[in-house]
């Protein structure tokens, strides 16, 4: 049965939303995908900021992407550069930072820029899901 979420139909299957996970570590993408898929999210992956920008600009993702979870320390286009791009070009897509390095100054600056959450690895599944759920609420509010 098709389900209406975030104002869009997604793939004809039940889906709580579409999440893009940007991290250079395949292991991290794997566990985040595992956690979020169990919670009913459709998960896309990108291995760095450059790929993330390609992914969000590809086909229906432009419209259907609900949340971006982004690492900071990555090759090519790093998290800071990628987030700046998303904030400028996809203002309605909420962003969650998931980083291995806690940096208070960076966290403050990113939260001021409108990032929904700044999570430091390792983060529990429940906390990650709660953060994505908050981001989804923000996403839906943006469509009102």
């Amino acid at each position: 049965m098709s389900e209406f979420k975030s104002g869009f139909f997604v793939g004809g299957e039940s889906c709580n939303g579409r999440v893009l996970v940007v991290d250079d570590e395949p292991d991290i993408r794997k566990v985040v995908r595992m956690t979020l898929q169990k919670a009913g999210y459709d998960v896309l992956e990108a291995e760095n900021g450059e790929k993330a920008i390609e992914t969000i600009n590809y086909g229906e993702n432009r419209l259907l992407l609900d949340v971006i979870i982004c690492d900071i320390r990555m090759p090519k286009v790093n998290g800071i550069e990628a987030i700046a791009y998303f904030r400028q070009n996809y203002t309605r897509v909420p962003l969650i930072v998931l980083t291995g390095f806690p940096d208070t100054d960076m966290a403050t600056a990113l939260l001021r820029q409108g990032v929904v959450d700044y999570l430091v690895k390792p983060v529990e599944g429940e906390k990650l899901k709660a953060s994505v759920a908050r981001a989804m609420e923000q996403r839906e509010l943006a469509h009102l």
Binding site: V32, G100, P122
Partner: peptide
């Protein structure tokens, strides 16, 4: 080295936690 160590420690810890939860 703090940033590099944190990155390299916390990534496998995230994997361990995620898999253990699963």
């Amino acid at each position: 080295f703090a940033a590099g160590i944190a990155h390299d420690m916390n990534n496998p810890l995230q994997l361990i936690l995620g898999l253990a939860e699963n």
